[in-house]
């Protein structure tokens, strides 16, 4: 195995696209090193992107934010602008693992690991985030939901890597939130996760909403029916119940060691409802 730590994006792309056999990007390493340790992956080349200056920064851009792919959860959590604009995204990122993991784990890594239970992904999808993908053929911008295609699989092509995550400008009177169910209070993989982002008009009627669920399908899913249940309402109890029911209906989970199918279906609705209530509060400026 080879270890390389290029200092430019171009250098990283060149390495990844080269004839190196199995290549893996190392950002925070909190998934990759575990997979190597447990013999699930044996890369021939590791490309450490943490020495690429542009990938270590959070930049305010066009009213939104550009988060470099090597920015850790802890750095994101300490960023005042992000905390104010997208608290749901920051909370989701900061739920991943321990303080120790937070010191390393990245949004981009969480996304590209393509776990259906990834905490930050429902929040990013709800927030309408996109990613900058860079590869041998240049850059493209892709909505977050198009990156994971199944457990452990992404739509990235050989030689491509995520350079940054783009958060849009936070619309006025909007709020986002992410909640998950875990049996302990920390350190677990989400049994269910729910991200909600919504916007109110001046009358307090919901004009836009995005709802995404984790750990209830082969990848994180967006739930248009749940969004429709909120839009046009004052996000009252009835609307929230309809949204919760839509979320439960959209689930196609499996039974596994972390939870049963029935439990996930039920709790997906509960969490989405609670997350929407928090998002609503935030949208109302509370």
């Amino acid at each position: 195995m080879r270890y390389e730590a290029p200092t430019t994006v171009k250098g990283a792309v060149k390495l990844l696209a080269g004839k190196a056999g199995l290549a893996r990007v190392l950002a925070g390493g909190t998934d990759l090193l575990v997979q190597m340790r447990t013999d699930r992956v044996a890369p021939d080349l590791i490309v450490d992107v943490k020495r690429i200056a542009g990938m270590r920064r959070i930049e305010a851009k066009a009213g939104g934010f550009r988060i470099g792919a090597a920015v850790s959860g802890a750095e994101l959590g300490e960023h005042k602008g992000m905390r104010k604009a997208w608290p749901g995204v920051v909370e989701a990122a900061c739920l991943i693992g321990s303080t120790q993991v937070q010191g390393r784990a990245t949004l981009a890594g969480n996304l590209c690991n393509a776990s259906p239970a990834a905490d930050s992904v429902p929040a990013l999808i709800a927030a309408g985030a996109a990613v900058v993908v860079v590869g041998p053929r240049g850059r493209r911008t892709v909505p977050v939901e198009q990156i994971p295609v199944g457990p452990g699989r992404t739509s990235l092509k050989r030689g491509e890597l995520v350079e940054a995550i783009l958060l849009p400008k936070r619309p006025p009177r909007s709020g986002d939130a992410y909640l998950r169910f875990i049996p302990r209070s920390e350190m677990d993989i989400a049994v269910v996760g729910a991200g909600v982002s919504l916007t109110l008009d001046r009358q307090g009627v919901c004009s836009a909403a995005r709802v995404a669920l984790g750990a209830v399908a082969e990848r994180v899913i967006r739930v248009p029916e749940a969004e429709a249940a909120l839009i046009g309402t004052k996000v009252d109890g009835e609307a929230l119940e309809r949204m919760a029911a839509s979320c439960s209906a959209a689930c196609r989970p499996i039974d596994d060691k972390r939870g049963t199918r029935e439990f996930r279906i039920k709790v997906a609705g509960v969490l989405a409802r609670r997350a929407a209530a928090i998002a609503l509060k935030r949208a109302r400026g509370k």
């Binding site: 270890y3 730590a5 390493g29 090193l33 575990v34 993991v101 010191g103 390393r104």
Partner: peptide, 18 residues
Amino acid sequence: SVTLDGRVVCSCLVLGAE
């Protein structure tokens, strides 16, 4: 646990090369 540039990390999840 060790610190890396002042941040606490799990040294089992860091490569020596890093």
